[in-house]
Computed example of a mutant assay.
Amino acid sequence: MIRVLVCDDHQIVRQGIKQILADADDIGWAGEAANGPDAIAQVRRGGIDVLLLDIAMPQRDGLDVLKQLKAEFPKLPVLMLSTYPDRQYAVRSLKLGASGYLNKSADSEQMIDAIRTVARGRLFITPSVAEQLAGAVGAGRGADDELPLHERLSHREYQVFRLLATGHSVGEIAEQLALAPNTVSTYRARILDKTGVRNDVELALYAVRHQLLT
């Protein structure tokens, strides 16, 4: 029996996944969490074979939670769930140790297949994610200039980048990410330098042009 923990801040999503898993004889419901810290606490208590982890959550986003969990439990299969297009987070999730990336628009059969696949210790990669991964690997083999500018951002820089691009102030970002405002300002300066833009307006236009925002 594959024991699955689902972490998503929307109760209706958690309940929907629970109904999907109920149809699989080899998959059991191990619990649910509405935020990252709760998910980490439940994993630490044990009895979890696979974690379904949403990316967009309050307090700490899914990628932050993934990074911590893979440091503590490197063998735990984590399947990332998201409403974002694959090009935004799939490759970043896999680089941080996720066993797979699944869009919430996937059908129930694909979700069941994904859980079974990662539970066996294998990667679950859809054709769309495979295309993104191949592109990232291909770019990595060439000169650094071939990489899209935003791909040079670290995980934390990319978090700040998206928040700046959606109109959040330095103070708001500092509060949301539990960082000092000066630290956020430092990240902002690095982001502007790496993407070659001059201000937050140009940064937002860059994000729209590269289809990095929903």
Rank of each mutant, 00 (worst) to 15 (best):
V208G: 04
H10I: 10
L5F: 03
T214I: 10
T195Q: 08
P181I: 07
T117C: 05
G121V: 11
C7N: 09
I48N: 01
I115N: 03
L94W: 00
S99K: 10
L205E: 15
A178D: 13
K95D: 15
L212W: 10
P127V: 12
D49M: 12
A30K: 06
L153C: 12
I173S: 07
K95T: 12
Q211R: 15
D26V: 04
T195W: 03
E109D: 14
L205P: 00
G36W: 02
L51G: 05
H155D: 15
G100P: 06
L192P: 07
D193L: 08
S105W: 01
L205G: 08
D64G: 03
S128L: 13
G97D: 10
L213T: 06
Q176R: 15
A134F: 10
G16F: 11
A98I: 01
P58D: 00
S154H: 01
Q59M: 11
Q11S: 13
I55G: 06
A98R: 05
G142W: 04
A90M: 10
E157D: 13
R60I: 10
I112Q: 02
A98N: 03
I12K: 05
D8G: 07
V170M: 05
G62H: 04
A178L: 04
A39C: 11
F124M: 03
L51Y: 00
D107T: 09
V50A: 01
T186R: 15
E157R: 03
V118E: 06
M1H: 07
I115M: 06
L53H: 02
L52N: 02
I48Y: 00
V137K: 00
A178P: 00
G47I: 02
I112D: 01
L179G: 07
A71N: 11
Y101V: 03
L177Q: 13
K75R: 14
V13N: 11
V160S: 07
I27Q: 00
W29A: 00
L52P: 05
Q11W: 01
D61C: 06
A22H: 12
T195D: 04
T166W: 03
